[in-house]
Simulated assay, not measured.
Amino acid sequence: MVNAVKFSGDGSTIAVGSRLDHAGLSLWVRDEGIGVPEEDQGRIFERFARGVRGRRTEGSGLGLTIVNAIAGAHGGIVQLKSAPGNGSTFTMVLPLNDQSDKSEEVRA
């Protein structure tokens, strides 16, 4: 969310949403910012990675690395859809755990 604000201009819309379905829980943030160039997309989740345009903006290059690590720790993934000048959508998908199976294991 911080990046969406940081890389979007005044008056831009930032949307946040969620969806629950058979694939799991999806959480997304969509902005109308500068977008991520295709050449930067492959490494955007690496520690200290900063896109060419991002280097002109304050930040450590750790935020997306942390988000990706949290998703991975829960068996999830983070996806990026972006095009320069057309904004970005980051989606975190977390799998659902079958709590009934877990409670059976605890009782045994």
Rank of each mutant, 00 (worst) to 15 (best):
G9L: 03
A23W: 08
G63F: 05
G61I: 06
D98V: 06
L62Y: 04
L27W: 13
D10S: 15
R30F: 00
I70E: 09
T89A: 10
L25P: 03
D21T: 12
G75A: 12
G76Y: 01
L27Y: 11
S12A: 15
N3L: 08
L62T: 04
G24R: 00
E38A: 10
A49T: 01
V16D: 14
H22C: 11
P37S: 07
D10G: 14
V78C: 04
E32Q: 10
E38C: 05
R50W: 03
A4P: 12
L25S: 06
L96S: 10
G42P: 02
R30G: 00
D31C: 02
K102R: 09
P84G: 05
D10F: 13
I14M: 11
I34M: 12
F48S: 12
T13A: 15
S100L: 13
I44M: 04
H22I: 12
T57M: 15
V106P: 00
K102P: 01
M92C: 10
V16A: 14
V29T: 08
L64Q: 03
A73D: 09
A83R: 11
I34P: 01
H22E: 15
E46S: 13
E105Y: 11
T89R: 15
R107M: 03
R56I: 01
I44Y: 01
K6R: 14
N3M: 05
D10T: 15
L20M: 13
I14N: 07
E38M: 08
A15K: 15
